[in-house]
């Protein structure tokens, strides 16, 4: 049917909240290429988890079709369950079982064993092996995350679904986790990863920006930032909060928001900068600096949200 590992074709899904129906995802379509790390970037409530559940055959879409490795998620769910690995949002581990008990349970669930696919998980397993007798509930966030990944990989899945694997995990563990994912790519496993952290988008091959159940944009991270339409400038001064308020009041400023050490300012045209600087000086800003800003996925996301 389809050669792509993941095909999403016009998927919609709503769920009832009280008396109303809320759309989790609305008419979403995209394709994930073989061996790709595909990022689903968006805040909580954007519809990421619903999409994951539809693709992992846990939910039936109201409309549209989805295919994993050519199998329809509704009709061929048996086939799909044999070939996908899934790490749900909250790392699904048994807190009262030890690391190795968790691993062997999930291995037997897929009729396999740790030994059988050891080469695939060894990089991850080596990191958690020192704690293999420890109960999963007593592991740190980063270790739990690695154990959950190990469990999801243990049957050598063709497609790996990771729903917010880095949420609530500190920056160091997050970096390590992404390194592990890039290594897995060598094993030609296709991965779909969701994250609310926009800075992680640049670690994916392609990303979909998703908000309120709609896809804002799909492309490589580089292309997405290249497509940024307006001039972006980074401002700073001695009084950052006042600077923010002052900039937000100016007519030729489209948007101004804190970004790292600077305020990112979206303008209609580069030529406005000297005039803005003059106005700011007149308002008593000192040590004022403005330089062309580096566009990030987050800037693009916010631009899409403003539309």
């Amino acid at each position: 049917m389809h050669k792509s590992p993941i095909v999403v074709d016009g998927i919609s899904k709503s769920y009832p909240v009280g008396k109303e129906k809320v759309n989790a995802v609305t008419n979403i379509s995209f394709i994930v290429n073989p061996g790709e790390i595909f990022g689903l970037i968006g805040p909580d409530g954007a519809g990421k988890t619903s999409l994951f559940r539809i693709l992992t055959t846990l939910l039936i879409p109201d409309n549209g079709n989805a295919y994993v490795e050519g199998f329809n998620t509704v009709n061929d769910y048996h086939e799909i369950r044999k070939i996908v690995g899934y790490m749900p949002g909250r790392f699904s581990l048994y807190q009262d079982l030890s690391v190795e008990e968790n691993l062997s349970f999930f291995a037997t669930l897929f009729n396999t064993s740790l030994e059988e696919n050891y080469d695939l998980v060894k990089d991850i397993y080596n990191q958690i092996e020192p704690f293999k007798k420890r109960r999963a509930g007593k592991l740190s966030g980063g270790m739990k995350q690695k154990l959950a990944l190990c469990c999801a990989l243990i049957h050598r899945p063709h497609v790996l679904f990771l729903d917010e694997p880095t949420t609530g995990v500190d920056a160091v563990s997050r970096t390590e986790f992404w390194t592990l994912l890039r290594k897995l790519q060598d094993q030609s496993i296709t991965m779909m990863v969701s994250t609310p952290y926009m800075d992680e988008a640049s670690l994916c091959d392609r990303v979909a920006l998703i908000q309120n159940g709609n896809i804002l944009d799909i492309d490589t991270p580089k292309e997405i930032t290249n497509k940024f339409e307006n001039p972006l400038w980074a401002f700073r001064s001695d009084q950052m909060y006042k600077l923010l308020l002052d900039l937000q009041q100016m007519d030729n400023v489209i948007a101004c928001y804190p970004f790292g050490q600077h305020h990112h300012v979206v303008l209609h045209q580069d030529q406005d900068v000297p005039e803005i600087l003059d106005q700011l000086k007149a308002k008593g800003q000192t040590n004022l600096k403005a330089e062309p800003g580096i566009v990030t996925i987050e800037d693009c996301f916010m631009q899409q949200m403003r539309k």
């Binding site: 805040p43 909580d44 954007a46 949420t167 609310p196 908000q211 909060y241 804190p258 987050e298 996301f301």
Partner: peptide
């Protein structure tokens, strides 16, 4: 304690603006 976890980038900025104004 991690007040902005999972919040979209625009709202996250708005949240920080609330923090700035409180500090102010």
């Amino acid at each position: 304690d991690e007040p902005t976890g999972g919040v979209d980038p625009v709202t996250r900025r708005e949240f920080w603006q609330l923090i700035y104004s409180a500090a102010d």
